[in-house]
Design a binder for these strands. Structure first.
Lengths: 394, 394
DNA sequence: GTTGTTCGTATGTATGTTAAACTAAATACG
DNA sequence: CGTATTTAGTTTAACATACATACGAACAAC
């Protein structure tokens, strides 16, 4: 359907532009917003007045001037409301409470004993509800309260319908998680794939509108941001890079194919490399597995060092493929594997310089911290609640 | 830089919307445009008046009505102007002359004797100029004349600057082709990668806003359309899918790496498969090479049938990878290899159903005809000249 | 102080969309 | 036939909004 533009749409657009400038800059004044956006000073004044009335913006004292009236400094009111972000993984659940700028004011990691009892959607529902309750309890008072909850899930989920299609390793299919949680929590709940949440956080915090977020843990997925928006694809299953072939006659994957990238770059790949090095039985699902592997490598254990190197090489190959296809501005690593950055990053970068072509050799690759995905999930909920802020689906 | 919206921008936007509706529909009336866009009838009337004055739209008689005044039928004036599109390949040059709807009114294929003499940019300049002259000579009279020339090139080119960075196999680097041609032809010249032109044509003719166009010939490249726009990437080198790894320990590629997709899916791959089947010396650069291979397979030659099958399988693997990453609505094949569609398409689809996951299994794959890339190049020139029409870069 | 500069606001104007009234032209039906 | 009804397109007035301009407020430098 086509979209017609009238005066209200125009004003809303300009208002959003003003708020986005305020969101990005720490502090600004009306005049500098006018200069940055091209909007007339009078227009900016009027829009800012509205935003102040809505509590999204505050006046915070005066700035400096070289010969003239001092500007009234404005800032995005980060504490206008709060959001809860949850990163649900197989081995643990990360929860954060953030303000509208996604600054973390509370966080919690809950270890999941994956082997103890079978995980059901009912159990997860209970656990998630409890996590939200705990976060809500410590939420400061604010004009808008809890804006919403965002949940990042490791698998196939539909952002639009709020339904889980398939969570591998958890064995959960067809679950209307967003509707379920919304009902029991009485707060809007948004869900998305974990790599998408990570990518969204990377975009919001860097401002880079074309980037990849590679989430490597038990599985491998990519979140793709293009022109400041998440690319989801026809069915919302874009970014399943873990199941691209990097070796036509390679290792058998859980998906039934041979040579999937995931089989060479995930925690389970690391475990296999260690077994191949004669490490005996190694369990990727054991608590603290990756941390242990990092420590072992750092203390000089050759089998571990070699396994990490092999994994890094595979990561480099897959990332090079993505670079060749999408030529993004930046690549970010997240997930448990990313915590080995000091060990694997140099090798990854070496492979990219070798395999990627032309300017792709110079695309920077770096790492995002643990709570990235959870923060991104909170950002998702915020974007849902405040459609004035940059949004992934428009 | 942020973009502010005032009344003129608003009107331009709505005008573009109206023209786009007219461009898509064969015939419409003011009222149905109003219904389709949500714009008020009065607004549509006023915008249509402008478009008629600019010759882009014509009134063409009356439509039917059940009880009421008959609507005045409007149509996009396809013959308001013309454009020339050129698909420059190593073995041949395709030229088309089209109206603004990219309907071909003249076309020409020039075989290039690649082995006879070394190809230089000077020689190409002469040949291209001659092709444009020939097309111009047969161009019908029209209110806006020749709107521009679009050139599709097999290699690394910059759409923005109009410069060739690198054309492999032709050995040409650093050539300001657009500026050169614009000067000698006195007509605006736009250039782009051949796969991008094909993708653009596929988008314009199908209206599908998220698709891939795989151009397989001497090399393999992908044109990527997302949200109705070409995805070019940070440096304009997105879509270099031919140089993604599908086999980490595979065949050495001209790019210096091992296992590039191109080494398994291009004309040269076909030649190699034939050699491996004991076909002796086979030359992929020989005129009519692919056509010959198609005929041989169709007449039952097992070596050829087997070679095509192997190639199709590799194509399927690479396309599956792209599907997994981008989850597009449709995939189209172009280039010389695509002419073997009856032979290879079933095998490609089989591989995709096997390797791609979930909904990606159902993404349709089909073929576009020979002149697609040239038509897309013309479409590029048109979009440059008439910024009211759907455009790749906005 | 005086002067010049910068910030923010108030006022009138220009642009453009919309709603509603109106004209035009056709069909349906008694 | 003639009239009511319906649909298409245009005109006009009302409304929304951004812009240009002018102006007052606040402040630095001399």
């Amino acid at each position: 359907m086509y979209k017609s533009v009238d005066a209200t749409v125009m004003r809303q657009f300009n208002k959003r532009t003003v708020l986005n400038v305020l969101y990005k800059r720490q502090q600004t004044s009306r005049v500098s917003i006018s200069r940055e956006t091209g909007l007339n000073r009078a227009t900016v004044s009027s829009l800012v007045d509205e935003l102040i009335a809505e509590q999204f913006v505050q006046e915070v004292g005066l700035g400096t001037s070289k010969g003239g009236r001092k500007p009234i400094l404005l800032r995005f009111n980060a504490n206008a409301g709060y959001a809860i972000g949850i990163d649900l993984q197989i081995t643990h659940i990360d929860t954060v409470l953030t303000n509208t700028r996604r600054e973390v004011v509370y966080q919690n990691r809950l270890q999941m004993a994956v082997h103890k009892k079978p995980i059901t959607s009912k159990l997860l529902h209970t656990v998630l509800t409890e996590e939200v309750r705990a976060a809500t309890a410590v939420c400061p008072k604010s004009p808008r309260g809890i804006l919403g909850v965002g949940v990042a899930l490791p698998g196939l989920v539909s952002y639009e319908t709020g339904r889980v299609t398939y969570l591998p390793n958890l064995g959960i299919t067809d679950w209307s998680i967003a509707a379920d949680l919304t009902q029991s929590l009485q707060v809007p709940v948004a869900i998305d794939n974990d790599a998408n949440c990570g990518a969204w956080e990377a975009f919001l915090s860097t401002g880079i509108p074309n980037l990849l977020f590679i989430n490597a843990g038990i599985g491998v997925g990519a979140g793709i941001i293009l022109k400041g928006q998440l690319h989801r694809g026809r069915d919302g299953i874009a970014g399943e890079a873990g199941h691209t072939t990097i070796s036509t006659l390679g290792v058998l994957c859980s998906c039934g194919n041979y040579g999937c990238w995931e089989q060479y770059s995930s925690e389970q790949a690391l475990a296999r490399y260690l077994r191949e090095q004669g490490g005996g039985q190694v369990d990727a699902f054991a608590p603290g597995f990756v941390d242990g592997c990092i420590e072992a490598a750092q203390s000089g254990n050759q089998a571990y060092i070699q396994s990490w190197r092999t994994l890094a090489e595979a990561l480099g190959v897959g990332i090079s493929n993505l670079l060749q296809i999408l030529n993004p501005e930046s690549v970010y690593l997240g997930g448990t594997i990313a915590e080995a950055a000091p060990i694997i990053l140099p090798e990854i970068q070496r492979v990219i310089r070798h395999r990627a072509m032309f300017a792709n050799k110079t695309v920077p690759v770096s790492v995002f911290p643990r709570e990235t995905v959870a923060r991104g999930a909170a950002g998702l909920a915020i974007a849902r609640a405040i459609d004035m802020l940059p949004t992934h689906a428009r």
